[in-house]
C-alpha cells in the first residue's frame, strides 16, 4: 500500500521539524533543488511554462494507470526546492485524492511566504495547475 498524500505531508513536516532555524531549512531546500532531476528536458517547453514574473516553473503531468504523475522544474533554486516538496506530496496519487489535498503543510514547515499570491514566483499558479490536471484526468478516468 503506497502512502497517502496526508502521510507524505506528515513525513515532510517531521523532516523539517529537525531544523533549528530558517537557514537550515533553506539549505535543505537548496539541496533538494540541486539534486533532483525533476523534469525531462523535452517537457521544458512553452506550453508547460508558468510565468511567475520572478521565477519560471515548468509542470508536466502524465497518467500512469489510475495515478497521476507530475514532473516539474524551476529556473530559481529555492523555488525548485519547494517544487520538489510539492511534487513529492502530490505526484503518484489518484486525481480525486490530489483534488482533495491542501497545502497547509507548507505553512507548517515555515515556507508559507513562498506560496503568497503576491510573491510572483509561479508556485501558486503551479498548485492551481496541478489541480487543473487532476480535474482533467479525473474526468478522463470516469
Amino acid at each position: 500500500m503506497s502512502k497517502s498524500i496526508q502521510q507524505i505531508q506528515e513525513e515532510i513536516i517531521d523532516e523539517f521539524s529537525m531544523f533549528d532555524d530558517w537557514m537550515q531549512r533553506y539549505e535543505y531546500m537548496i539541496e533538494l533543488g540541486k539534486s533532483l532531476p525533476l523534469i525531462d528536458e523535452k517537457y521544458k517547453i512553452e506550453e508547460n511554462l508558468i510565468k511567475g514574473c520572478q521565477s519560471k516553473v515548468w509542470v508536466h503531468a502524465e497518467l500512469n494507470g489510475e495515478k497521476l504523475e507530475f514532473t516539474a522544474d524551476s529556473d530559481a533554486i529555492i523555488t525548485k526546492g519547494i517544487v520538489a516538496i510539492l511534487i513529492r506530496a502530490f505526484s503518484g496519487h489518484h486525481p480525486s485524492d490530489i483534488l482533495e489535498a491542501d497545502t497547509q503543510f507548507i505553512d507548517e514547515i515555515g515556507l508559507k511566504e513562498h506560496l503568497s499570491p503576491t510573491r510572483a514566483n509561479g508556485l501558486v499558479s503551479m498548485i492551481k495547475q496541478l489541480k487543473m490536471y487532476a480535474i482533467a484526468y479525473q474526468t478522463q478516468l470516469k
Partner: peptide, 13 residues
Amino acid sequence: GMHPYDIGTILDK
C-alpha cells in the same frame, strides 16, 4: 549565473 530571486530571498531573510 545564480538566480536573482534566490539571492533576493536570502537577503530578505
